[in-house]
Computed example of a mutant assay.
Amino acid sequence: MDISPSLVTYALQEDIALIGLNRPAKRNAISDRVVEALHLAVERAQTEAKAAVLHGTGTHFCAGLDLAEHVEKPLIAAVQGSRRWHRIFDGIERGGIPFVVALQGAVVGGGFELAAAAHVRVADETAFFGLPEGTRGIFVGGGGSVRIARLIGAQRMGDMMLTGRTVAPVQMEQWGGVSYVVPAGQALEKAIELAKAAAQNAPMSNYAILNALPRIRDMSSEDGLFVESLMSSLTSVTPEATERLRAFLEKRVAKLEAPK
Score class of each variant (00 low, 15 high):
T126P: 10
V122M: 13
G105S: 00
V108H: 06
A123L: 05
A116M: 04
V108Y: 02
G109K: 04
F99T: 02
T135V: 07
G137I: 07
F129L: 00
A102Q: 01
F112Q: 09
G96H: 04
L114D: 00
G95P: 08
F112W: 11
R94C: 14
G137Y: 00
G111A: 11
V122D: 03
E133A: 12
A117T: 14
G109Q: 05
L131W: 05
G110I: 02
G110V: 03
A102W: 10
G137Q: 09
Q104L: 01
E133W: 15
G130F: 15
E113Y: 01
L131V: 01
G105D: 10
G110L: 13
G111M: 07
A127H: 10
F129S: 00
E113P: 14
T126Q: 02
G130S: 14
A115I: 09
G134K: 03
G134H: 12
T126L: 07
R136M: 13
F129C: 08
A118M: 09
A116N: 00
V107G: 02
V100Q: 00
P132C: 12
F128A: 10
G96K: 10
V101W: 03
A106T: 10
G111H: 12
D124W: 12
R121M: 06
R121N: 06
F112Y: 14
L131K: 03
A127N: 06
V120T: 04
G95F: 05
Q104I: 05
F112P: 01
A118T: 13
G130Y: 00
A106R: 09
G111F: 07
A106N: 15
V122W: 08
A116S: 15
V101F: 10
A118S: 15
V107D: 08
G96T: 12
A127Y: 08
G95E: 11
A117E: 02
F112I: 03
A106W: 11
T135Q: 08
G137V: 01
A115H: 12
F128Q: 08
A117Y: 08
G134L: 12
P132K: 02
G109T: 03
V107T: 02
R121A: 15
G111N: 04
E113Q: 14
A117H: 07
F112M: 14
F129P: 05
T135N: 08
